[in-house]
């Protein structure tokens, strides 16, 4: 049905709009972001998530998709069938600089002697009433705004130019975009006309204790290690905009925590999971390593 298990490799595949979390994603709310998001969804107001990389934006969207219930629809042969009550499907698109409007909407492809129309992820989400999450949206090419604008105001319409169609978004559809104001250059800022179509939720790294809790849970390491990692991250983040474009993300802390839990020495784990991914600048690397070696004994 929705999940197909391949007999040989045992991997699972989903149609993009049918992917939904089966287990509750782990997420620790830092403030009222859950309530804000829920209210926005209920009112069909698109959401803009701001914040540094690896602080939990994507996880948050997954968490919300899981918790926002609506009748589960399956698109089959163009007809939607209501089957059961379930959480929201989530379509995630990582944007890159060559991502064009037709990558999102869909295109004709040649297949043998005929052309076949293939829906893009955005179209699928619109049809399925899923949450469509455009990650790092500023990276995408400017023509994508043509799609975003009519979808995000009262019209909730997706123009499919090549098929000369307009699609009305299904209930439940919500456009969520994320962007990281920190490291993008001024050129890649989000335009006001785009920004002002969203409610914005600002994310930052969680406070030390919360972060430690998250790391402990996700990395399955001891609380002591997690707390030390969180403390270290706090110190490293002090270096932001001082040779470091971004602070150490919670995600990296979790990686480090997992490495430590797997038996790698803490200093080494931090080196491979935090210091080296963060920067190539030798001097900054050494500074961070000194912080690491101050916090971890070996």
């Amino acid at each position: 049905m929705t999940t197909a298990t391949d007999p040989i490799t045992e991997y699972r595949s989903w149609a993009v709009e049918e992917f939904r979390a089966e287990e509750e994603p782990y997420y620790v709310p830092v403030s009222d972001e859950v309530e804000v998001f829920e209210a926005a969804w209920n009112n069909k107001i698109p959401v803009l998530l701001k914040g540094p990389t690896g602080c939990g934006k994507t996880r948050f969207v997954e968490y919300m998709a899981y918790h926002l219930n609506r009748p589960l629809a399956v698109v089959r042969d163009g007809k939607a069938e209501v089957e059961s009550e379930s959480n929201l499907p989530l379509v995630t698109v990582a944007c890159h600089e060559d991502l064009t409007a037709s990558d999102l909407v869909g295109r004709y492809l040649l297949e043998g002697n005929e052309t076949v129309w293939i829906d893009g992820p955005l179209t699928r989400a619109v049809k399925a009433g899923a949450i469509c999450y455009l990650d790092e949206v500023v990276e995408a090419r400017k023509d994508t705004t043509v799609l975003i604008h009519p979808l995000t105001d009262h019209r909730r319409i997706l123009p499919v130019e090549k098929k000369s169609q307009l699609l009305q978004a299904r209930d439940g559809f919500l456009l969520v975009i994320s962007f990281n104001p920190g490291y993008q250059s001024a050129l890649k800022d989000l335009k006001q006309s785009t920004r002002q179509r969203f409610v914005a939720v600002e994310f930052d790294y969680p406070p030390r204790e919360t972060e430690a809790e998250i790391v402990q849970h996700e990395a399955e390491c001891s609380y002591e290690v997690a707390l030390n990692l969180a403390k270290m991250a706090e110190k490293i983040r002090n270096l932001r905009e001082h040779g470091l474009a971004e602070g150490a993300s919670t995600r990296l802390l979790i990686y480090a925590g997992r490495m430590i839990a797997a038996g790698v020495s803490p200093r080494r784990a931090c080196q491979v999971a935090i210091v080296w991914p963060l920067t190539d600048d030798g001097e900054v690397q050494r500074s961070i390593e000194e912080v690491v070696s101050s916090i971890f004994e070996d």
Binding site: N238, L239, E283, V284, S287, I288, V291
Partner: peptide, 15 residues
């Protein structure tokens, strides 16, 4: 000194 400066900045959070 640059190394130590960054180290101290990291610890203290001030410039």
């Amino acid at each position: 000194s640059e190394l130590i400066r960054m180290y101290c900045k990291a610890l203290t959070g001030v410039d």
